[in-house]
Design a protein around this nucleic acid. Structure first.
Lengths: 356, 356
DNA sequence: CATTGAAATGATAGCGCTACCATTTTGGAC
DNA sequence: GTCCAAAATGGTAGCGCTATCATTTCAATG
């Protein structure tokens, strides 16, 4: 290759070159011409109206209306190094809790003219890595992640991309960049204390086996064991595990198995409200009064929780606020403002209703 | 303005101009230099590897690894008039049914290196219009809409944008461009016939008041009335309306009101599975056996439907397939393939379980 | 009227990649 | 070895907008 003779400049006239322009597309040039200003003034009239005279502004706006011009944000983003896109990665698009965060984030960003690119990792690090590669190529102004578990490669990639990153839905002291979340490990002990205060003497946990649910379950079981209120002899034997993708039916069958094993059970912490719903159904089928015979606590405070019979006591996390704050953090970063608080703990609360 | 003296070319040396390049960013030029090829060969090695020699390809790939290069998709999209983005508009990000469609669409598109921009219209045409303006500026390769109700302005905008558009979740003969959906008006008569065949003699409908739910409800009531099996004297009096954002509790209270009004009721069609769940709860509280005393049919076949007691009979629409087909249609269009079938009716089915 | 500084506008060049035409290289056939 | 066509590679220019420096215009002041 190095030995190749360099090609000489072509003698072909440039004017015979085919146009590469998207046909029929109205550009800023067209607007500027019609308005009788330069393209950059037309651009300013759109993006920085306060530095353009009222007269010029009105002429540009009239030209935009007449031509039906829509700015090409690809070009503007490239020229300004500002895409006004934020990319979000969720494990699944059909999980109610994450989507609440994404909704709030999307709304916050839409207020300032941002759009959201969405990606699904399917709870799989390799897929997340692939997705991150594609996403970084989009040059978003920020990236929001719905968890803190990433591959080493993914971390390095994100840290080196020069893009603001906000991790959510967890709380660790060493985020990639910024973090808005809550501590799963702190929930267990709070719920254990709550059930003890409620008079429970033999409690257990019914939990999905995804990483975060496992942490909540284990911290609950350990705290309950320390309080000497576990239904099983050990913390471990007071946990019943369910496959990660839970449903009402899975929760129901899981409770049946748990109750078989620990029939003296008088309180149960469920890894989600969906699981708790299954527990309520099975408890009723077995003639157990809730909360008299069995106290039930869920997680998530989903929309249906107050409507169950009895209304579900559950751990509430403000998914909405996480999304809003994540949006704020990114916008501040983009604006060059000092972001003092890179770690935001939104906490959680136990919403007391009729089930416990 | 027209009388202004044109500015003369500046004598300032071009080399004193500040660089506008994103600092530290590795570009294709850097990769090409390191690999000893031209930038366009490096580009081909990435995008069209089959027209590059194996030797050059490997040198480019090594250079990419060494530099950590990530293509700038803004630039590539602008130069090629191909963004590899598809924009989706949903009424809400927290509604389970739409998100199933979006998930399937996202997965289909991810297979071929596309990303999805997501927007929320909030069931508001003005908001949708605003969103469409922003979205069109992104120059996506396609736009997917989750309904056919748009403002006149929005329609004109979409039709004139030169971007493939797929409307979903409905079925009309006059889509803006392409359509993948099912007929809400056809569902009512099918459910009425089903309940009649089930032996019901006094049926009613419990429905949210959003446009599509209303169409299902009215067509059901009309068909049931024609079959002389309405619980009320008229089709209208056999409908009970709920505010559009329904929940289990709203469904439950709505059924209580309906039952108060029409106590001889022996079959009910609900506008969603969530509403049906509330009906099941209230029926049980009233000692009504389902389906012996009251047949219950839902809509949507949500994940919890089989787990209810009794398992819910419901109208199933393949939300997943709508997303997948929508993705396929857009990809075909982008590839310049002939898209013969611009209207795809995915139909619906009545999933018979224990509640009817 | 002249001067000055701020406001308004314009020119130049570039953001990073790729469409398309041009040129070179390679391999097979005779 | 020559010729030819296909494969491989490169040069030019542009996609549509905007950062930044340059120039012009305007308004206030003395």
């Amino acid at each position: 290759m190095k030995s190749r003779v360099k090609t000489q400049p072509s003698a072909s006239p440039a004017s015979t070159r085919k146009s590469r322009r998207a046909h029929g597309g109205v550009t800023l040039q067209d607007v500027a011409r019609l308005a009788g200003v330069s393209p950059i003034t037309a651009s300013r009239a759109i993006n920085q109206p306060d530095v353009v005279s009222e007269d010029a502004r009105e002429r540009v706006q009239r030209a935009i209306r007449q031509t039906g011009y829509t700015p090409n944000l690809l070009a503007g983003s490239l020229a300004s190094s500002r895409s006004r896109l934020v990319a979000v990665v969720v494990p699944t698009l059909t999980g109610p809790m994450f989507m609440e965060t994404i909704q709030a984030l999307t709304e916050r960003l839409a207020e300032v003219g941002y759009q959201v690119i969405i990606g699904q990792s399917g709870y799989d690090n390799a897929r997340e890595d692939e997705l991150l590669n594609a996403i970084i190529g989009r040059r978003p102004d920020g990236i929001v992640l719905t968890g803190v578990a990433h591959s080493a490669k993914g971390r390095v990639r994100l840290a080196g991309a020069g893009i603001p990153v906000v991790e959510t839905w967890d709380f660790i002291p060493t985020p990639i960049d910024m973090l808005v979340g809550f501590s799963h490990d702190s929930i267990g002990p709070e719920v254990a204390a709550f059930l003890r205060q409620r008079g429970c003497k033999r409690v257990a946990v019914l939990s999905a086996d995804d990483e975060r649910a496992v942490r909540r379950a284990k911290s609950f079981a350990a705290a309950a064991h320390a309080l000497r209120i576990t239904a099983g002899k050990t913390a471990n034997s007071s946990c019943e595990w369910l496959p990660a993708l839970t449903s009402l039916g899975v929760g129901r069958r899981g409770f049946a198995a748990l109750f078989e094993r620990l029939p003296k059970l008088d309180g149960v912490f469920c890894s989600s409200d969906v699981v708790a719903q299954g527990v309520l159904a099975e408890a009723q089928a077995r003639g157990l009064r809730v909360p008299e015979d069995l106290a039930v606590v869920g997680f998530g405070d989903l929309a249906f929780a107050p409507d169950l019979h009895p209304p579900l006591t559950t751990v509430r996390v403000d998914a909405n606020e996480m999304g809003r704050i994540a949006g704020d953090l990114i916008l501040k970063r983009v604006a060059g403002e000092s972001v003092k608080t890179r770690l935001v703990d939104v906490g959680f609360s136990i919403v007391e209703r009729g089930s416990a």
